[in-house]
Amino acid sequence: MELNRGKQAIASGGGSRSIANHVFHMINRETQTPPSPFEVYYKLHYNAKKGWLNY
């Protein structure tokens, strides 16, 4: 699996959850507003220790 994972062009830190599920959990509870596309992209493709996961 590690070899196949290394072949992917774009890395993602989203885990096994779908993007829609990530968006659902990022909805602001007070105002019921969904996150912006940039906020979702940032959450899925940025790691504080490694930086941007895309090459």
Rank of each mutant, 00 (worst) to 15 (best):
E30Q: 12
L44P: 02
A20F: 05
R29Q: 09
L44I: 10
K50M: 08
Y55A: 05
G6M: 13
R17Q: 11
L53F: 05
T33W: 04
P37S: 05
Q8M: 08
P34H: 13
G14W: 01
Y42I: 04
Y41L: 15
H45Y: 03
F38I: 07
I10M: 06
L44M: 10
S36T: 15
E30G: 00
L3Y: 04
I10D: 00
M1C: 07
A48D: 15
L53W: 04
A20L: 10
R17N: 07
E39H: 11
I10E: 01
T31Q: 07
H22Q: 13
L44F: 02
H45M: 03
P34L: 11
L3W: 03
G15E: 10
H25D: 13
P37T: 00
R5Y: 03
S12H: 10
H22N: 11
G14E: 01
K43I: 01
G14F: 02
H25R: 12
K49L: 12
A20P: 00
S18F: 04
R29E: 13
L44G: 06
A11R: 08
G14I: 01
M1W: 11
R17M: 12
S16H: 13
T33V: 10
P37E: 14
G13D: 09
V23Q: 02
P35W: 04
Y46A: 00
N47K: 05
W52R: 05
G15Q: 03
H22C: 11
P35A: 04
S16Q: 11
F24K: 03
K7F: 04
G14D: 06
N47I: 08
M1L: 13
I19D: 12
E39R: 09
F24M: 09
A11F: 04
P35I: 01
K49I: 10
A20K: 10
K50G: 00
R5L: 04
Y41K: 05
L53D: 01
G51K: 11
F38G: 05
H25F: 09
M1K: 12
G13S: 09
G6I: 01
E30R: 13
S12V: 08
P37L: 10
E2I: 10
G6W: 01
R17S: 06
T33D: 14
A48F: 14
N4E: 15
N4P: 00
F24V: 06
S36R: 07
S18N: 03
P37G: 02
P37D: 12
G14L: 03
L44R: 02
